[in-house]
Amino acid sequence: MSSKFKAIKKLVLILCLAFGYESFGFTVTDTLYINSGKLSLGLQDSLQLTVFGSSENFDGRNTKFKLNPNDILDLIIINLDQHTHKAAIQGLNETWETLNTGDSAHYILTFQDEGIFILEDLLNDKLFSYAGLSTTIAVSKRFSKDFHWNIKDINSEWSEEISNNATAVAAAEYEPDFFLLNELRNPGIDLDSTAKVRGSVGDTLHIYISNTGNAIHSIHLHGYHATLIYSSGNQVRLGWEKDTYGLEPGESIILEIVPDKTGEYPVHDHNLVAVTGGGYYPNGIFTTMVITE
């Protein structure tokens, strides 16, 4: 990291302390490792995935970020995978570098507005999105209980072929057999505290949902209607109050729920094939919201 950048960071921090962080934001520093390996899903299922991991050792999970508007993300991306990648966030004005095996890139990214941004590999028509390589950066100005869902669909054979050999695919024939939320599936999702919705009656809960897969997902909530307060896609839906929201590939939304009653209520994909995994019900996108007094 250059001394010039360190000086800028210091200056920003001083200004933040003086004028409040909303004006200037904080700096979040992190390193992502592009690596590939076998993710065990339990129940004797595993998937070969490529992810933006948090360490040199493959753990099968994409690292997600949550920032405030005007925060700076000081990000290093290191490619430990055998294939070349070009990690990028579409719509962000930045020069993205192509990373051969062992290469790294350093980015200072500023996110001014609220939204959810998808970090993905742009090479070969986003081929590695079929192998799981995409994560989310949520930028939020809200002080509420928040939950983050990175939804994916994976064809296990394609994912293995791509991760191992970067083999091109016929997108028109795509048929996933695994459906994941934060690289987990039912019942494992329930153990992810960033995903598992827990709250109390009267709380304002925000669920940040991105579809980083290649299929359309239709997320249905039991128990409550949710208001759409952000969409990276069709803006006309803002303010709608619904119990089922369709998400197209690459689309992100923020849902607001204010629970009016206690209970444990499912949230699941209403393409009920996506509630399965490896050909078994109910090992797909299915979790519950737990609301207490």
């Binding site: 039991h222 128990g223 209607h225 119990d243 089922t244 009653k261 206690t262 209970g263 444990e264 209520y265």
Partner: peptide, 17 residues
């Protein structure tokens, strides 16, 4: 399951809940 009616957990029709 009364889809969209936001009934309470007891009447939600999800067998294990």
């Amino acid at each position: 399951h009364l889809h969209g009616l936001d009934v309470n957990q007891e009447n939600d029709g999800v067998p294990h809940l």
